[in-house]
């Protein structure tokens, strides 16, 4: 009980601990730095900067989709359609290319797909009142199935070979790959939306307590509907980037992508119950998972065995979050007790 009388701020170590515990993004940054440092020590190729630019290119579709899901999850709703969306968007884009010979129409059609699917999901959940996890699980199978039916399980190749389109994936601005620029712009927009606007505050409020939010005059349905549309749109942007990589619409694209994205979101500290989490943390979590995958590939660890490591890392990371949150809560309590003690309030 001696710690009760020592204000945490007096001790240098304690002070840093408090900063770490109270800042989620910072704690993830520490984790990311640790992972990178570890790989730099054991794998010499991980010391090259080109590896990291490459990594940023590869994680960008996941980052875009994960940010959309994070915003939606803040309000307490799920979207499992992102994996199927990756396939659908690719098919729609390349098919429109082939039918219209116009690149911009194809891209537009791809984005429109996300908008429409997001709106359908949103209508099911907010207008009819269906549960989002179940609804988007159904939509996930329905979309994937329609892709199978439409393509008859054969890839659709871009006959025009729009090299301009593939630049979306391969072009570099200096050392910076273009897809990560798209991703970071969207992360920044999402960050702004979540933290600096009324819409963002309403989203957090709904996730914290939907009934309280409704009673205090927030239009819960409209906010959730908008979030579904945003999530759909983000998924189609991820599909756009993914498709630019091969210039081909694959019917099997993004199988299991929804769980991969969800893993990153959860690693970023978002709560599945809603109300907790933030966009920056999700982006950092995507980087952490990406770095581990990249590092293991460079160490030529079998792709299949990487799953094992990623699973273990996920468990450790979630536990790390728990400890951090507990530390934050304890520090707050101790600071409160110390303040009360300083005032001579013994009962506290």
């Amino acid at each position: 009980m001696s710690s009760v009388f020592a204000s945490p701020q007096e001790n240098g170590w304690q002070k840093w601990k408090a900063v770490w515990a109270r800042n989620e993004a910072l704690s993830l940054l520490v984790l990311l730095a640790g992972v990178i440092a570890l790989f730099m020590v054991i794998e010499p190729t991980m010391r090259k900067s080109s590896v990291y630019w490459d990594l940023l290119r590869q994680v960008s579709p996941t980052m875009v989709a994960a940010v959309g899901i994070t915003l939606l999850l803040l309000s307490g709703e799920f979207d499992l359609t992102v994996g199927s969306m990756l396939a659908l968007t690719g098919i729609v884009i390349v098919d429109t290319f082939n039918r219209t010979d116009n690149m911009w129409l194809g891209i537009l059609a791809g984005l429109l797909t996300g908008l429409v699917i997001g709106a359908i999901n949103g209508t099911f959940v907010t207008v009819i009142g269906m549960e989002s996890l179940m609804t988007t699980l159904g939509m996930m199978f329905a979309i994937r199935g329609l892709v199978y039916v439409y393509t008859n399980q054969t890839p659709i190749v871009d006959q025009n070979r729009f090299t301009q389109f593939t630049r979306l994936w391969f072009k570099n601005f200096g050392p910076v790959p273009s897809p990560i620029i798209v991703a970071l712009v969207l992360v920044a927009l999402a960050y702004f939306l979540a933290t600096r606007t009324e819409f963002g505050r309403n989203t957090y409020a709904i996730g914290g307590n939907a009934n309280a939010a409704r009673v205090s005059g927030i239009n819960v349905r409209r906010v959730k509907f908008t979030l579904f549309v945003i999530s759909g749109l983000m998924a189609s942007v991820a599909g756009l980037l993914y498709t630019a990589q091969t210039d081909t619409g694959y019917f099997n694209a993004g199988l299991g992508f929804e769980l991969e994205v969800l893993a990153a979101v959860v690693l970023g500290g978002a709560s599945l119950a809603g109300g907790q989490g933030n966009v920056t943390s999700t982006a950092l979590a995507v980087l952490i998972i990406g770095t581990i995958g990249k590092g293991m590939r460079l160490m030529s660890i079998d792709t299949t065995q990487q799953l094992l490591v990623i699973g273990i890392v996920m468990l450790i990371a979630v536990y790390y979050h728990r400890i951090r949150k507990q530390t934050a809560a304890r520090l707050t309590q101790e600071a409160y007790a110390a303040r009360q003690a300083a005032r001579g309030n013994v009962l506290a």
């Binding site: 769980l259 969800l262 959860v266 094992l308 699973g311 996920m314 979630v318």
Partner: peptide, 10 residues
């Protein structure tokens, strides 16, 4: 979700 990866990896 993590165990899904771990068991698949095994």
């Amino acid at each position: 979700l993590a165990m899904m990866q771990i068991v698949r990896g095994l």
